[in-house]
Measured scan of single mutants.
Amino acid sequence: MTYKLILNGKTLKGETTTEAVDAATAEKVFKQYANDNGVDGEWTYDDATKAFTVTE
């Protein structure tokens, strides 16, 4: 299944996707991606759209 990450960081904005077996796996991938790019903020998840959002 495809999951999307929407980044609303102070220095990094954009979107990326990942293929994962479930939302928990996608969340781990996205949190590592955000951490690697220096984005740390409030996380939300919308199951209807399979989209995670992180806002700094």
Rank of each mutant, 00 (worst) to 15 (best):
F30I: 01
F30E: 00
T55N: 09
Q32C: 08
W43K: 00
Y33W: 14
N8S: 07
K10Q: 12
K31M: 09
V54L: 12
K13S: 09
Q32R: 10
K28I: 12
G41A: 02
L12Q: 09
M1L: 13
A23Y: 13
A20H: 03
G14L: 15
L5R: 00
E19K: 12
W43C: 02
L7D: 01
T44Y: 10
E56I: 10
Y45I: 01
K13L: 07
T44D: 09
T49F: 07
K28G: 07
D47M: 07
K4N: 05
F52Y: 05
E15C: 13
A34F: 03
A26P: 00
G9H: 06
D22G: 04
L7C: 08
A51S: 15
F30G: 01
V39T: 03
T49A: 12
T49M: 11
V21R: 11
V21C: 08
K4Y: 13
A20R: 02
T44S: 13
Q32E: 10
A24Y: 10
F30A: 00
K50T: 04
T53E: 05
Y3G: 03
V21S: 11
Y3P: 02
G14W: 15
T16Q: 10
E56T: 07
D22T: 05
G9L: 15
T11L: 13
L7S: 03
D22H: 04
E42V: 14
T53N: 04
D36H: 08
D47H: 11
A51Y: 07
T55H: 07
V21H: 12
T55G: 04
A24S: 10
K4I: 13
V29S: 06
T2L: 13
N8Q: 09
E19Q: 14
T25Q: 13
A20K: 02
F30S: 00
G14I: 15
D36C: 08
V39H: 04
T53W: 06
Q32I: 10
T25H: 13
A51K: 09
T18E: 04
Q32T: 09
A51G: 04
T16Y: 15
D22F: 03
D40K: 13
K50Q: 11
E27I: 08
F30K: 01
K13H: 10
A23G: 04
T55K: 06
L7F: 11
N8M: 11
D40Y: 15
G41Q: 01
A34E: 00
L5V: 04
V29Y: 15
F52E: 00
L12S: 08
K4R: 11
G41I: 02
T49Y: 06
Y45M: 01
Y3H: 03
K31T: 04
W43M: 04
N37R: 15
N8V: 13
T17K: 07
T18H: 07
Y33V: 05
Y3Q: 02
A51H: 06
D46M: 04
F30R: 00
V54I: 11
N8Y: 11
G14D: 08
T25W: 06
W43L: 03
T44G: 06
K4W: 10
E27F: 15
Y3R: 00
T2W: 10
G9V: 10
L7Y: 10
D22E: 04
K50G: 05
D47W: 08
T11A: 10
A20F: 04
A23M: 11
T16H: 14
V54N: 01
K31W: 07
V21F: 12
T49L: 13
A24F: 10
M1G: 12
K28D: 06
E19H: 13
A34D: 00
T2V: 14
D40G: 08
F30Q: 00
A23W: 14
D22K: 03
V39I: 15
T2C: 11
L7I: 15
D22A: 04
K50I: 02
D47K: 08
K4L: 11
T11W: 14
F30T: 00
D36R: 08
W43P: 00
K4P: 02
T49D: 08
L5C: 07
T25N: 08
G38H: 09
G38C: 08
